[in-house]
Design a protein around this nucleic acid. Structure first.
Lengths: 174, 174
DNA sequence: CCTGCTATCTACTGACGAGTAACGTTACGG
DNA sequence: CCGTAACGTTACTCGTCAGTAGATAGCAGG
């Protein structure tokens, strides 16, 4: 049911997706969705939360503390690009709606902020806290934009994308 | 009239903005908008086109050919961040709706692509054509994300933002 | 003062879609 | 058999706009 919702939202976007279409895609009738997931906003929020949690879990697991910064960044990016490749639809939902000034905007912004905070924390040891935030924003923005480009270049593998991005970033080596 | 539209769109987003509200903000009645600018989609497209043209004009003028790459990039970024600071609403319209999977998506994607192509062209001399595109995507993505961060840190000046971004990019020095 | 033309408004229509009320249908306990 | 409860469906309501038809106001020329 959530899968169907993610699929339709990723194809149509939040506003163009109708509950009828989602219900049909899920193979159930509309009132069922209202019974189980609540309103359209609730449904969308549920999609966001699930996809965001998947992504964050992957990244956190891939870049454990204790490794050198360079390597953590490298592996974190790897995890990110892998997620995009494997959960295309989930990522489109997160990304395509990410900035649309909508009722649920807070939901996505919060998810994004968690990732940015993750990156910022990763960079923090080597630079002051408030210096690392803007860098983290920029890194995440760059990774997102690169993923966007990669959507039209499916031949690009995650390691290639990671190498590209690492190659253009001047990050603290320690 | 376009000004009013940009203002309302920037506050509400495309879908939440009603033609009635735009008409009221412009101090005219709804049929006037339809008479002069056409449908809601047309109106939004007109806003996008105007703002995008302003932005592109500024960037092109700021980074003329003939200068070293580093400097062109620096000045291009300066122009970009200045635009964001001075045309906040225009940029929000471009940025916040940038990826929303909408009828007019092509309009914004096209505008964005022109900027990316600009950056790619700028980097092209020092790397192969198809190598510079992903880099351009990433640079533009990073700049956008940094602007987003700067929206909540109004004390940041354009030169500061530019320095930050230049500092974290490893770009060809020639 | 009337005629017609342009510019603008008020007040409507029609579609669409979120959310719901009321109606089956199956399963099970007595 | 018959209540009744869990689960599901069809077929509505109702609000909200995008878009428009028709009325109105100003104004040129006769």
């Amino acid at each position: 049911m959530l899968d169907a919702a993610v699929e339709v939202f990723s194809q149509r976007g939040f506003h163009m997706a109708s509950m009828d279409e989602i219900a049909e895609a899920a193979g159930v009738s509309k009132p069922m969705i209202y019974a189980y997931l609540g309103s359209k906003d609730d449904l969308f929020a549920a999609c966001i939360r699930r996809e965001a949690r998947r992504l964050i879990t992957l990244i956190t697991a891939a870049a454990p503390p204790g490794l050198p910064i360079q390597q953590r960044l490298h592996q974190g990016l790897m995890a990110f690009f892998s997620f995009v490749a494997e959960h295309r639809e989930g990522w489109i939902v997160l990304y395509r709606q990410a900035r649309a000034l909508e009722p649920f905007a807070g939901e996505i912004v919060a998810a994004r902020e968690r990732i940015i905070a993750l990156v910022a924390g990763l960079l923090a040891p080597s630079s002051a806290e408030d210096e690392s935030m803007p860098i983290a924003y920029a890194v995440v923005g760059a990774a997102e934009a690169l993923s966007d480009w990669a959507l039209e270049h499916p031949d690009q593998t995650s390691p290639e994308l990671t190498t590209r991005l690492m190659g253009m970033l001047r990050v603290p080596s320690q």
